[in-house]
Structures are given as structure tokens and as C-alpha cells.
Amino acid sequence: MAIKIENLDYVYMQGSPFEKKALDNINIEIKDGEFVGLIGHTGSGKSTLVQHLNGLLKPHSGHVFINEHETTEKGEKLKKLRCDVGLVFQYPEHQLFEETVYKDIAYGPTNLGLPKEEIDIRVRDAARCVGLPPEVLDKSPFDLSGGQKRRVAIAGVIAMKPSVLVLDEPTAGLDPAGREEILSQIKSIYDEGNMTVILVSHSMEDVARLVNRLIVMNEGKVFADGTVDEVFSRGRELRNIGLNVPQVNVLIDELVARGLNINPNIYTVENAKNELIEYFKRIKEGGENA
């Protein structure tokens, strides 16, 4: 398995008057090849949790294993672990620093001490993955648009060829078209099949149509963990902890409450459309009674 978290606890500002339990007895297993959505509002502990996945934070108690290795390891082994789990932070474009896009993407692979040819292959491959045209590679990253900068930053992590890719709010602050573009690229990266992907977000709408498993965090604990259907079936509880289920899901709920005989587990406009068309056809043929 790829990731195993056992009884993980983490306390912020330990021993100070502002002490706060950020993670409270977390137990999660994520297998190779899963596409997981990690959801929760600000302060729910989700960002703290992902920083444990590559050893940036160490558990105060409990264990985190990545491919059988514990994150408390040091030196070269820790470096290896950081390559295994690629972490893309919120607003990752703020960490760009090189003169050219090419050099910036190459920063990670260079730190790994790879040969020049291999670095070149990886940079070009990563750029392709996030949909950056080759001519951009020689430009300064600071001359690009906001969405493009973000893709450069994501490419910088992908170039490390991690087996797990974690993205923290990759769509924050983008316009609808930019959001759509980034999400579809993440989807296609996952579809290439080389990576386990963990998508951290507070937007249920973005996540629902992509992932095959959802983990919901609240107040440092795992609030729900299961398939999208299983988690969204607890819609009211989710709303109570400050999360929004997709609008179309609320609509389908409402229609079921008003007596339509349709499948209640629907989260995307596309599925809702198909389900309603089926339903309309059935009643047209007189198959449904009033």
C-alpha cells in the first residue's frame, strides 16, 4: 500500500497559551492508484495532515508510513521520501524563483542529483503533463499569467516523479475557466496511471466529479471516509460542519422530496441531466404513475 497513517496526533504551539490540537487520532490507509479527495473547511486539519505525508511535520504521537517507510527517518531516506510524495502547496506560484520556466521545473530533479539528460526528459515531460507549450520553457516564469505560473509550479513537483501527488487547493483564486483547466489536467495526470493523487479542497463541486474516494476532516478528526456516494448521502451533516454539497445534489434531494422517483446519489450536472431525461422518457411512455 502507498500510505498508512496510524493513531496520528499533532498539537500546534505545544506548551504555549495558544495550544491547539490540530490532528486527533487519525487512521487512514490509501492504496496505490487511488484518487482521493480530502475535504474540510479552513482549520479542519487537512493542510496539517498533508504536511505529514512527506515528513515536513513529524507526528507528536502515532505513525505515518509511506511505502513501508516511516516519515520520522532522516537524511537520505527522508530525501527519498520527499521524492515519493510530491506536495503542491496552496498558491504554489509564490515559490517560483528561477530565471526561466525550464530551470524552475528542473530545480527538484537537480536536487535529486539526476544526470542532465534525465532532467531534460523529466522537465519536458512534466511541462507536457500540465499543458505548457514547449516555447514557454525559455520564458521567465514571472512574465506568465496567473494560471500558467501555477501550472509551472505543479510541473516542478511532477518532475520529481512522485508516486503520490498531493495538491493543496490547486484552484484557489482562479477564474472558472482556469479552475476547469487545472482540474482536467489533474484528471489526465491521474489517468496516465503512474500516480496516486490526493486532492485537497474545500470545494465539493470540484472534487465530486473527479475522485473515487472522499475523506472529510472536521476539527482535526476524520469526519467521513468512503466513496463519493457514501459521503454525500450525509449531506445535512456536511452542511452542519460548514461544507457545501454541490447545488445540483441539493436540487435532486428537493426533487426526490417532492415525489420524483429518481436516483438520489447525483453530484454532477451531466449525471443529473441524464437521470432526468430517463425519468421524463419513462413518464412520457406512461410508465410512472402520478
Partner: peptide, 10 residues
């Protein structure tokens, strides 16, 4: 490049 509310789109 803009969205509409999900219900409108549906």
C-alpha cells in the same frame, strides 16, 4: 470562460 449556476446549466 464563465460559469452559470449549476441549476441554470441543468
Amino acid at each position: 470562460g464563465l460559469d452559470v449556476p449549476q441549476v441554470t446549466e441543468l
